[in-house]
């Protein structure tokens, strides 16, 4: 039903699109940060958003779960459809939206609580466990899913901030998946981590793909190539092109994309 809107996108089945955006503009006060983004994000795949700093990829990500609402003066226009429903519809409950669309941030941000309480936070507020035992089961399952359980099983009462950076980020992933969302947004989840921790996280993302629709913002082209099935390239607040990752990296259709992925800067590029 949304196919008629698709213009320069390699078609994916409308049924497979978990999220479709149409003409999304984002403003921060008088400054426009995103210009008419149309993008389809397929179900149960990893979609990578790449582009130089300040290109709007994080802004786009934060528009999906309406985290831009928390910034004073931010305004979003256009449509972002989650299963065909506009998330900016005034009748939509933002609390429900964010329960369905989880998010992992660039810098690990565990709450100043115990490891257990960090993971239990979402299930608690959403009332997903009827008993303490059930809650413990959710926590253990989520920690296990995030590949952290074996490392912390003896000290679930230790503060989340006592973990190493990579562990903290996996704790945040565990926290995000404990509410069993449909979509997982990841904003450069490995940028603050060392290579080993990054590898662990990337493996985890690949495993999570089976159950979640994942959108990941990344600075690293290699990471995008490694973890994603589809890639969207942003530049100066516009979506330049998107398609299967392999295609984008081997045969980009746009000159800007090619310059970016081959490492040529915009300044060296001859005028259009």
């Amino acid at each position: 039903m949304n196919q008629s809107f698709q213009t320069h996108v390699a078609p994916i089945g409308a049924a497979a699109a978990k999220i479709s955006t149409r003409g999304v503009d984002v403003f921060y006060g008088p400054k426009q940060a995103l210009f008419g983004v149309d993008l389809d994000i397929p179900r149960n795949q990893v979609t990578a958003l790449i582009g130089p700093s300040g290109c709007g990829k994080s802004t786009f990500l934060r528009a999906i779960n309406r985290m831009n609402d928390t910034i004073a003066g931010a305004r979003v226009e256009g449509e972002i459809l989650l299963d065909g429903e506009n998330v900016y519809d005034p009748v939509l409950d933002v609390v429900e939206l964010r329960a369905r669309v989880g998010m992992v941030f660039q810098k690990p941000n565990p709450f100043p609580k115990s490891i257990f309480e960090n993971v239990a936070y979402g299930p608690r507020i959403h009332g997903m466990a009827r008993s303490r035992a059930e809650l413990a089961e959710i926590v253990v399952r989520s920690l296990r899913r995030a590949g952290l359980f074996e490392e912390v099983k003896d000290r679930l009462d230790a503060p989340g901030t006592s973990l190493s950076g990579g562990q903290q980020q996996r704790l945040c992933i565990a926290r995000a998946i404990a509410t069993r969302p449909e979509v997982l947004l990841m904003d450069e989840p490995a940028s603050a981590l060392d290579p080993i921790a990054t590898a662990v996280i990337e493996e985890l993302i690949d495993e999570l793909r089976a159950n979640y629709t994942i959108v990941i913002v990344t600075h690293s082209m290699q990471q995008a190539a490694r973890v994603s099935q589809r890639t969207a390239f942003f530049h100066l607040g516009r979506l330049i092109e998107d398609g299967p990752t392999a295609e984008i990296f081997s045969t980009p259709r746009r000159r800007q994309t090619e310059d970016y992925i081959t490492g040529r800067s915009a300044a060296q590029r001859p005028g259009p």
Binding site: M67, T70, V95, R98, A99, G102, N109, F111, I125, A176
Partner: peptide
């Protein structure tokens, strides 16, 4: 601010 964002992003009021 991270902590506030983290909590709101979980769907907390």
């Amino acid at each position: 601010r991270d902590l506030r964002d983290g909590s709101l992003a979980m769907g907390a009021t």
